Simulated assay, not measured.
Amino acid sequence: MQNNYSRALGVLALDIEQNLMRGSLIHKDTHDYPILIERVPGAFVKNVVAGDETVISNYIKTGEKLIKQGVSALTTTCGFTIRFQKQLSSALNVPIAASSLLLAPYLAATYKDTIGIITYDSRSLKPSDLRYAGIEEGDWSRFPIIGLENTQTWSAMALPENNFEFEIMKADLSNAVVRLLDKYPNVKCILFECHGFPPAAEHIRKTFKLPVYDAVSNAKLLMT
């Protein structure tokens, strides 16, 4: 059954418990338009992060379900779905911006210096993955990648309960940014790959006096 939304965002969620932290992509107060959330069967953290393409068909089916419910655009709750962007946009009949990494070309054109990426796991996100966002190989070096692997936040996000905590996430992200800036002092802005990170974005902006772009930024651009 289709609802009469003038504009609504559909969110293709990982098949885990949803952490409705204030400021998150899936918190109703984050947006000034309705959001509809559907879990994608079989889309677990481990296989999506690994780029398992067998889950793409379920992303498409779930997207079609949300479209029938009346959404005008789609996104997801995992930045690693950048690898599925082409297939999803080809198959679905509304605009979809699967990953915050799609902001990379905009940032590359806007900033002349280094753009730091903070990811859930830097062992899984490679510079070559930026090609899915349209970044050519000659520009991959402009996007150094630092991950949260082996932190408390990383461990909690890996579990089906997905019960990561705000204060711990702030600390883990702050430590990651310190490592990023120590190694790459010319970083002029930060892009969060992980769609669970936005609740801490304002803390990082205030602490490090740097612009931070994330899944919420991506959704706002999509719904403009």
Rank of each mutant, 00 (worst) to 15 (best):
M1G: 13
M1C: 09
M1D: 10
M1Q: 12
Q2V: 13
N3G: 08
Y5D: 07
S6R: 11
R7Y: 12
L9Q: 08
L9M: 06
V11H: 08
A13L: 07
E17N: 15
N19V: 01
M21W: 00
L25Q: 08
K28L: 12
H31K: 07
H31S: 03
D32Q: 11
Y33E: 01
P34M: 05
P34F: 08
I35N: 01
L36R: 09
E38D: 14
V40M: 07
V40F: 01
G42P: 06
A43G: 04
K46N: 14
K46A: 15
K46Y: 11
N47K: 05
N47T: 05
V48W: 07
G51K: 02
G51L: 04
D52Y: 04
T54A: 11
T54S: 15
T54M: 05
I56R: 10
Y59H: 10
Y59P: 11
I60F: 11
K61M: 08
T62L: 03
E64Y: 10
K68W: 00
Q69V: 01
S72H: 12
T75E: 05
T75R: 04
T76D: 06
T76H: 05
T77R: 06
C78E: 02
G79T: 04
F80I: 04
T81Q: 07
I82A: 09
L88W: 07
L88Q: 11
L92S: 09
V94D: 04
V94P: 05
A97P: 00
S99C: 10
S100F: 08
L101G: 06
L101N: 06
L103I: 13
A104W: 10
L107K: 11
A108V: 04
A108M: 11
D113T: 12
I115F: 12
I115P: 11
I115R: 09
G116Y: 04
I117W: 11
I117K: 11
I118L: 13
T119R: 05
D121N: 15
S122N: 14
K126Y: 05
K126A: 10
P127T: 08
S128D: 13
S128F: 05
S128Q: 14
L130M: 09
R131I: 09
Y132I: 01
E136D: 12
G138N: 14
W140V: 02
W140P: 03
W140I: 01
S141V: 10
F143K: 07
P144W: 09
I145G: 07
L148W: 00
E149G: 13
N150C: 08
N150H: 14
Q152G: 00
Q152V: 08
W154C: 05
S155D: 15
S155Q: 15
A156D: 14
M157Q: 13
A158T: 09
P160A: 02
E161S: 12
N163S: 13
E167K: 10
I168G: 00
M169K: 02
K170R: 14
D172H: 00
D172C: 02
D172S: 01
N175Y: 02
V177I: 14
V178Y: 12
L180Y: 00
L181G: 04
L181E: 01
D182E: 15
P185D: 06
N186P: 02
I190Y: 03
F192Q: 04
E193L: 06
C194F: 02
C194H: 03
G196A: 14
G196H: 13
F197N: 02
A200F: 03
A201S: 15
A201K: 13
R205Y: 00
F208T: 06
L210S: 07
P211V: 03
P211A: 07
P211S: 08
D214F: 05
A215P: 02
V216K: 10
A219H: 02
L222G: 08
